[in-house]
C-alpha cells in the first residue's frame, strides 16, 4: 500500500525540505522578534504584534494573492529579486520559502514570545550581577528557560508549513520537484477523481501530524510536571 510513486516521494521530500528550511529561518527571525515583542514598551509593538498575527486570520488565498502581486516582475519583491539576480519568485521554491515564512510566522513567534514574557526579568539581572556578560546570560539563563517555547514554536512552525495549501496553490502552482508539495499532490489526485491515491498520501499526512502534535504535548506536559527535563 505504501509503495509510493516517484512523484509522490518527490512531493513528500519537497514538503519536508520546505518545512525544515522554513522552520530554521523562522527560528532565527522569531527569537529576536519575540524578545523585542515581549520586552519592548515601544508604541509600535502592538502594531507589529498585529502584523505578525495577521496570517492567523487572513484566508490563505488573500495572502497568496498579495504575494503573487508582490512577486510579479513589476512588484516590489519581484524587482528586488531580479536586482539580486534571483529571477522571478512566483512558481519557484524560493518563492514558496518566503511566503511560508510569513504564513507560519505567528505559530513560531507566539510560543517563544509567551516563554520570554513569563520568564522572570530578575533572573537576568541576577545573572549580570553574578558576572555574566549579556551573551552568556542569553545562552546560560534565557535559552534553557525558554527551551519549551522554542521547541513548541519550531514544531508548530514545521507542522503548519507541512499543512500549507492555499498560499502554495496561489503562488507556486503545481510543478513537480519545484513547487508540488504533498498537499497540492493530494488536491491533484482528488481533482482527477483518483481517490485511492489521495487516501494514501492523506493518511501519511494525518499520521505524521498526529505524531508530531502528540510529541509536543507530551513534552510540554513532562516539563510542566517536573519543572526540568
Amino acid at each position: 500500500m505504501f509503495a509510493l510513486t516517484h512523484e509522490e516521494l518527490q512531493a513528500l521530500w519537497l514538503t519536508v525540505k520546505l518545512a525544515s528550511l522554513v522552520t530554521f529561518i523562522l527560528l532565527l527571525i522569531s527569537t529576536p522578534l519575540a524578545w523585542w515583542l515581549a520586552k519592548s514598551r515601544s508604541r509600535f509593538a502592538p502594531s507589529i504584534s498585529a502584523l505578525v498575527a495577521l496570517p492567523l486570520v487572513l484566508p490563505p488565498s488573500v495572502l497568496g494573492f498579495y504575494f503573487l502581486i508582490a512577486f510579479a516582475p513589476q512588484g516590489p519583491i519581484g524587482q528586488l529579486s531580479q536586482w539580486l539576480g534571483l529571477g522571478s519568485l512566483a512558481f519557484s521554491f524560493t518563492g514558496l520559502v518566503i511566503a511560508s515564512i510569513v504564513y507560519s510566522l505567528p505559530f513560531v513567534v507566539q510560543p517563544i514570545q509567551n516563554a520570554f514574557s513569563t520568564f522572570p526579568h530578575e533572573q537576568l539581572e541576577a545573572a549580570a550581577t553574578l558576572g555574566a556578560s549579556p551573551f552568556k546570560v542569553f545562552y546560560s539563563v534565557v535559552l534553557p528557560n525558554v527551551k519549551v517555547g522554542l521547541i513548541t514554536g519550531a514544531v508548530l512552525g514545521f507542522a503548519h508549513t507541512v499543512g500549507e495549501f492555499g498560499v502554495i496553490l496561489m503562488i507556486g502552482g503545481n510543478i513537480p520537484g519545484e513547487t508540488q508539495v504533498a498537499s497540492v499532490k493530494i488536491y491533484e489526485y482528488v481533482e482527477a477523481m483518483d481517490y485511492s491515491q489521495a487516501h494514501r498520501l492523506s493518511a501519511i499526512l494525518l499520521v505524521f501530524s498526529f505524531v508530531v502534535l502528540l510529541a509536543v504535548y507530551r513534552f510540554q506536559k513532562k516539563v510542566s510536571v517536573t519543572g526540568r527535563d
Binding site: 549580570a128 546570560v137 528557560n145
Partner: peptide, 20 residues
C-alpha cells in the same frame, strides 16, 4: 561599567534563583 563587570553582589528580595 556595566553590571556584569562591577563585581558587586546583589541579593534580591525573592532570591532570583535560576529555576533551571
Amino acid at each position: 561599567v556595566p553590571a556584569h563587570q562591577r563585581n558587586i553582589g546583589y541579593v534580591f528580595q525573592q532570591g532570583a534563583l535560576f529555576a533551571h
